[in-house]
Design a protein around this nucleic acid. Structure first.
Lengths: 310, 310
DNA sequence: ATCAATCATGCACCTATTGTGCACGGTTAT
DNA sequence: ATAACCGTGCACAATAGGTGCATGATTGAT
């Protein structure tokens, strides 16, 4: 209901280039360029300036984008309230999520919605957390299930989003079956301080999480190898290249000669899984129902765990 | 920036029929019908119901319209703030007004704006007060100069508008030159209680004003004739058919054998001339400049009056 | 210093959204 | 019963808005 061109401007404000905006919104670069030019013409404001080979927002542009946050939230609020007041059904619902954990929550959600609301077309997009937020801004999706840094508070209070914690997914240690500690039930990170570690490349979400886990207990791990997929990491561990951290929700096929150990001690690293929606939309009946379903799934997962580490 | 279809819905909420909405927005009835249908489809809400040979808003529709007030105001706010922050110029500016009084204020405004902002295209629409408000809602105009009932508070605190008082235009009495009181400088309404009065038809803005003037002093006038235009009323008075009330700003050509007397006594009837804008837009530099110019014109008019009745 | 890569934009072309005009069906008032 | 009014559907037309490619400008790499 808010003009598409303003939405596009907001996406541009997030990613900085026309090309990225186009990719994110699903338009072509030409279309984005034209939209922004048209927006400036209609509003009679100069929002963009040439900057090197790209463009950047002017002060007016930044001002407008910043102020539009409350406008969007207000609209989402109104829409949600109207839907609730009128007991109406919406026709399209976009979900975003990343990683196996999110998938384990999103899949039952999509299935449940399909049964309770047959004529609602549910669309699921797999995307990493950062992109999920972009997709929310771009209004391509309405709800995202993402893994957040447990310590990271930067996105926590973003005026554009509202987030609800679903569950904390603890990290386990995986070591080769022939490792001296393989017969143990639990270990501490200190005990593995001198091991060669396997993690993802610096800059990734998981890497930050990895580092945070060790700094919490005052250990500096020696990073020996890098892997992107869980499967790869597990294979590395199985080959005896080192040890790694694996989220509880990531499945570990028994075939590969790797064992999984719980972490004890004061630092219990975990990744936090949260649901994020555009601010204001949280009162929508559809969002409410979805959050309920997600919470049920989350609780079922929690219930299946030993009571000492929830 | 707010979707045109929502604007159309808001206009419909004011006037109740598709046809009137079409006339007011400048679309054809088919287009309005299609827009509203499309709006319902996009939002997934049923906003309209068949009602006799027309349609009316559902509860959801009313809810949405009511809630959209703050949304519109928020946007106007944002736009105005951005314009101010970035020192930008807007390209189109719509003015609305009614009656000679408004015209006397709007003409200098339009002229002044044309000189200070050469590339701003100013458009003036003559329309009665009620229609002016409709045109503001429909976003056909951005500022209206209207005469308001001095007592009427119904529009006073409408969440859609913000109003600023420009001046109070006192009502004079006009009587035939050969009337016994014609040589007087001033009269009271009580002195004219038994005269045959000329006014506009019941239901009109002016009629309400007329009645209010008399009820204020506890007199019930005998309404003998009705006229729509000031010119007609003056002619009636000149022909000796009765007496009437004439706003100070309405010109009285000396040729017609009619004299104008000030009203004294505790009831000094006046019509209030106010400027109205969409709520939120009042901070816009263009609006601010316009209000300043209007105030100057108003002050010049006030300065030309005897000091006892401003 | 040249060359390749990146980015935004303009243009030609096309699609499809959106508006118009008219005819029609349903409803109310005379 | 008839006429007036109101909203809607349809065929058609206009135009806003999309894509894809070529171009120019700028930056970084060889």
């Amino acid at each position: 209901m808010i003009d598409q061109r303003l939405i596009t401007l907001r996406v541009f404000a997030r990613c900085g280039t026309i090309g990225a905006t186009a990719e994110l919104t699903g338009y072509s670069p030409s279309a984005v360029s034209a939209q922004l030019r048209e927006l400036q013409r209609v509003l009679g404001m100069q929002l963009l300036t040439k900057d090197g080979r790209g463009v950047r927002l002017t002060a007016t542009g930044r001002f407008l984008v910043a102020g539009s946050d409350t406008l969007i939230a207000e609209w989402e609020n109104l829409r949600a309230a109207a839907m609730e007041a009128g007991d109406q059904v919406q026709s399209h619902f976009g979900l975003g999520g990343f990683s196996t954990a999110a998938a384990q929550l999103l899949a039952p959600l999509a299935a449940a919605l399909r049964s309770t609301r047959p004529l609602l077309e549910v669309q699921v997009l797999e995307a990493n957390p950062a992109r999920c937020f972009d997709l929310l801004v771009a209004e391509r999706i309405d709800l995202a299930v993402i893994v957040a840094m447990q310590s990271d508070t930067s996105v926590e209070d973003d005026p554009r989003f509202e987030q609800t914690i679903l569950l904390d997914d603890p990290l386990d240690v995986i070591i080769p079956s022939d490792h001296p500690l393989a017969s143990r039930e639990t270990v501490t990170l200190e005990e593995l301080a001198s091991e060669p570690w396997i993690t993802e490349a610096a800059g990734s979400t998981y890497h930050s999480l990895f580092v945070a886990a060790f700094t919490a207990v005052g250990v500096t791990p020696r990073i020996a190898h890098e892997a992107v997929e869980w499967e790869t990491q597990i294979a590395f561990v199985g080959a005896g290249l080192g040890v790694g951290l694996l989220p509880r929700l990531a499945p570990l096929r028994s075939a590969e000669n790797v064992v999984r150990l719980r972490i004890t001690g004061k630092g219990k690293p975990a990744r936090r899984i949260v649901a994020a929606v555009r601010r204001g939309s949280i009162a929508s009946p559809l969002i409410q129902e979805s959050l309920g379903i997600l919470q049920v799934s989350a609780n079922r997962i929690l219930a299946a765990r030993p009571e000492d580490d929830l």
